[in-house]
Every structure is written in C-alpha cells, then in structure tokens.
C-alpha cells in the first residue's frame, strides 16, 4: 500500500467524509444532476425536432470541441498529480502542477471564447433556435464553472506558495481540486450530447 492509499483509506468507511469534504460532494451531485436534467430536456426537444437539431449541430466545430476536451482532461490530470504530490510532501512539484492546471484552464477558456466569437460573427445568438439556446446556456454555465474553478485554483496556488498546506493539512486543496474535476465531469456529459451524438 502506498502512502497515498494510507492517507485516503484512513477515511475509507465514513459516509460524512468523502474525499474533499461533504459540502463539495453535495454540490457535485447537485450540479451533475442539474446538468443531466437540462440535457434530458434537450434530448426530449431534439426528439421532437430532429432535423433542426441535426442541422444546427452540423454548424458546431467538433474539432475545437475535441481539442478543448483534451485540454480540460489534461488539466484534470495535472490537478490530480498536484494533490498526489502534496500528499507525498513534495510541495514544490505540487505548486508547479497547480500552475500548469491553471494555465490549461485558461487555454480552455481561450478556445471556448474563439468558438463563441465565431458563432456571434455568424449571427448565432442565444435566441437563434432552440438548439442554440441550449448550446449557449449549457456551455455558458459550464464556462462560468471553469472560471470560478480557476479563481479557486489561483487562491490555492498562492496559499500553496506561502506554505499554508502540507502533507497533513490539505483539505482545502482537495476541495478545490474536486471542484475543478467537477468541471471535467460536467463536460463529459455536455460534449457528446451537444457536439457528437445525434
């Protein structure tokens, strides 16, 4: 058993102590379920107007979407590594990985903004049609989560640099990381539903 597993299995069977704290997990469930409800409504609307949805979906750029997915997943990897290094007491590496996470998050926002600007240039706004109302609302809310996540990570980054956390005391870092991973989770639902399947 590695040291990491030791730390984690300490809290193994306690319902009130999921990794990162109970509040963030309540939030994660709320968010995931909210997006699932929205996507179910989206799927229902699509079944009633398949042609229009297919046409609108063809106007999206799946390549940009795929690149963005990879960027987001990689940032998630670096965040997971940052937490792992912190647990192992490697503070310097943890700080560096957190920084990479933030930068990749900013790349995600940049690519998304480029995609948005293209849509606006073509006059496709919030009220273009039902598909794009959902597109803007869902990706917009996701983007807001990513932005909030970056703000949280920046706070964590500076606290880490000041040496506020160490191998023993790092629950806030875990909570922030969980929030960041939540953005990945939501994107795992949004991306195929909006960009890929029909």
């Amino acid at each position: 058993m590695s040291s990491e597993q030791h730390v984690l299995s300490r809290e193994k069977n306690d319902i009130l102590h999921p990794p990162g704290g109970i509040l963030i997990w309540i939030l994660i469930f709320l968010e995931v379920i909210t997006f699932m409800i929205a996507l179910s409504v989206f799927a229902y609307m699509r079944s009633r107007n398949a042609a229009m949805f297919a046409e609108s979906q063809a106007m999206l750029n799946p390549l940009l979407g795929t690149v963005n997915t990879i960027v987001l997943l990689s940032s998630g990897y670096f965040m997971a590594e940052a937490v792992r290094k912190l647990r192992a007491g490697l503070l310097k590496l943890s700080v560096r990985y957190t920084l990479v996470t933030i930068l990749l998050g900013l790349v995600f926002i940049a690519i998304k903004s480029f995609e948005y600007s293209q849509k606006i240039e073509h006059g496709i706004g919030l009220e273009y049609n039902t598909f794009f109302t959902f597109y803007w609302l869902l990706t917009g809310f996701h983007l807001i989560h990513v932005s909030v996540g970056i703000v949280i990570l920046v706070f964590i980054y500076f606290s880490l640099r000041k040496g506020r956390y160490d191998a023993r005391d790092h629950e806030d870092v875990e909570t922030g990381a969980a929030f960041w991973h939540m953005c990945d989770l939501i994107w795992m639902l949004l991306f195929p539903m909006l960009y890929l399947i029909n």
Binding site: T34, I37, L126, E127, T130, L137
Partner: peptide, 18 residues
C-alpha cells in the same frame, strides 16, 4: 420575455425544494 427563461426558470426553480 425570451424563451430561455423557460429553461433557466424551470431547472433552477425545481431545485428550490432542495
């Protein structure tokens, strides 16, 4: 007002009971 309030209002107000 625009139709997006139907989606936003519907989803968030059904979370209010929580």
């Amino acid at each position: 007002v625009p139709k997006y309030w139907l989606i936003v209002g519907g989803i968030f107000s059904s979370l209010e009971p929580l």
